[in-house]
Simulated scan of single mutants.
Amino acid sequence: MSNDQPQWAKDEATNLAIAYVDWLGRDTVDADAEQVLAQSVSQALLSAYERGRAEREWQPIETAPKDGTPIFAWCVHEADPYHDEATGNLTDYGCWAEVTSRVANGPQVVVWGGEDSDYDEWSGKTYTWPNWWFRHGSEFEEVANPTHWMPLPAPPAKENDNER
Rank of each mutant, 00 (worst) to 15 (best):
G25I: 01
D80F: 14
F140M: 14
A157L: 08
S42G: 13
K125A: 05
W132D: 08
S123W: 02
P107W: 00
E78W: 04
N105M: 06
W133E: 14
L152G: 05
Q108S: 11
L152N: 03
Q35Y: 10
V110C: 14
H136G: 00
S138C: 06
E12H: 09
E141N: 09
H148G: 04
E12G: 03
S138P: 00
E85Y: 09
T91P: 03
F134R: 05
W149M: 05
A38C: 07
A17M: 01
G88N: 00
A44T: 02
A33D: 04
W122G: 08
A9E: 08
T91A: 00
P60N: 01
D32N: 12
P156L: 15
L37I: 14
R26S: 13
V99L: 12
Q35H: 07
F140D: 15
N162T: 13
M150C: 11
P156F: 15
E12M: 09
L37E: 05
G25F: 03
G88Y: 01
V110D: 08
T63F: 14
H77T: 11
P146G: 04
A17H: 03
G113V: 02
E142M: 12
M150L: 09
A33G: 03
D11M: 04
T91C: 01
W132R: 04
V76M: 06
Q5N: 06
P155K: 05
A97K: 07
N131H: 15
E141C: 08
K10A: 04
Y82K: 01
R51K: 13
V41M: 06
A97L: 04
G68C: 02
P156R: 15
E115V: 07
F72C: 10
R164E: 14
G88V: 00
D116C: 13
A79T: 10
F134S: 05
A48M: 13
E115Q: 09
D27G: 01
A73I: 12
K125R: 02
P153E: 01
S138G: 02
G114D: 09
H136E: 12
R164N: 13
A33I: 04
N105C: 14
N145H: 10
G88L: 00
A97E: 09
Y49M: 15
E115Y: 07
T91E: 03
D32Y: 08
P107F: 01
E163D: 13
S138A: 10
G114R: 07
E141A: 15
F140V: 08
E55M: 07
A13D: 06
E50H: 09
I18G: 06
A44K: 09
A13W: 01
S117H: 07
